[in-house]
């Protein structure tokens, strides 16, 4: 009986341990994807529970005209939602972008939020982004609540609306902040393809 009990304890504790190790592994992976360096070379970890209400990641490239045209809107969104506890960061989804070019570009466009580099496309893959400027809304725990366009300003390449009709990122954020499900959690982005390398491997 005692032996059985000891066995039971070992099994329970053991499996608990194993479970714990697994969980740690998973978190470590996620966290790994979420630690990027910013344009000044400092590591940056996406904020977690207790640190924000939501995280918005916007993938950019320094030379996509559509992504660049969005700079003023990204800055506006960042200002508005900062007050509601949303952390914005813009992430260069470019494999071969030098830190100097990124830094210069971020200064020129005046981004007022953390500006990160993702040369290995870790966060890009974790979120499943394929285009710039693609936006992702993450819960503080890291769940993907929205992924897609910022708004419907571009109907197609070379066709831009004069008046925006659908504020997809704002709508997603408003829903997320009031604890409601996001009505359209995925939308299609008009922009430039993220370059996954010569083999074009997505994952």
């Amino acid at each position: 009986m005692r032996r059985f009990l000891r066995l039971l304890i070992t099994v329970v504790v053991g499996s608990g341990l194993v479970w714990q190790i697994h969980a740690q592994d998973d978190q470590a992976k996620t966290r790994d994807a979420e630690v990027l360096t910013d344009v000044s070379g400092k590591p940056y970890r996406l904020p977690g529970p207790g640190e924000c209400q939501a995280v918005v990641v916007i993938f950019l490239s320094h030379d996509c005209p559509i992504a660049n045209a969005y700079a003023p809107e990204i800055k506006r969104l960042c200002q508005v939602y900062k007050q509601r506890g949303v952390v914005f960061c813009v992430v260069y989804a470019e494999r071969d972008l030098s830190r100097e070019t990124a830094k210069k570009h971020a200064q020129e466009y005046g981004y007022c939020c953390p500006v990160l580099l993702d040369p290995e496309l870790k966060l890009v893959r974790r979120v499943g982004a394929t285009k710039v400027p693609e936006a992702a809304v993450l819960s503080p725990r890291g769940d993907l609540l929205y992924r897609g366009r910022i708004d419907d300003r571009y109907v197609d390449y070379g066709q831009r609306r004069s008046v925006v009709r659908s504020q997809d990122l704002r709508d997603a954020l408003d829903a997320a902040l009031s604890g409601k499900p996001v009505a359209r959690p995925r939308t299609e982005v008009i922009g430039c393809d993220i370059d996954f390398g010569p083999t074009g491997q997505h994952r």
Partner: peptide
Amino acid sequence: RKRARQLARICEKRIM
């Protein structure tokens, strides 16, 4: 190379 598909797409639509 890094925008090969986009070049093809945009030229096919005769935007560029």
